[in-house]
Amino acid sequence: MEPTTELPETLPPALVERLRRLDRSQPIVDPRTDRAVLAQATEFFHARPRRAAVRMRWALPLGTAAALLLVAVLMRPLLLDAPGADDIDGSGRVDILDVLALARDRAARGDAAGISDARIEELAYRIVALDSSRSLP
């Protein structure tokens, strides 16, 4: 029962006085001990809020960076190695049809296409490479 400072007027004064005494009763603490504990607690809690603040201050940017890095790593196969450059026909995968498209473009436009034999062969050898062949869904 929480002490309260409000006393009902109907209670007998003796009872009220006894209740007040209960309300006022505290554990007996030596004031010097109390002051010493308070001083140590103050010192301790003064330090902690700063380090926590440091962590709290950098946590967000670091976390954001980590998240972006993770996304980048996971998305790299889709972004950096995206078949965009080699997916000549835009099918979403790199295969012999892209080589054919490259060769047809070169045959149609000649030197203006800016496509060399080496480029066509390079793409062809990439699609048959056993250790890196891959197609996108």
Partner: peptide, 8 residues
């Protein structure tokens, strides 16, 4: 082995 070829 992966083989591929094309013709124009």
């Amino acid at each position: 082995i992966v083989l591929a070829s094309f013709s124009l």
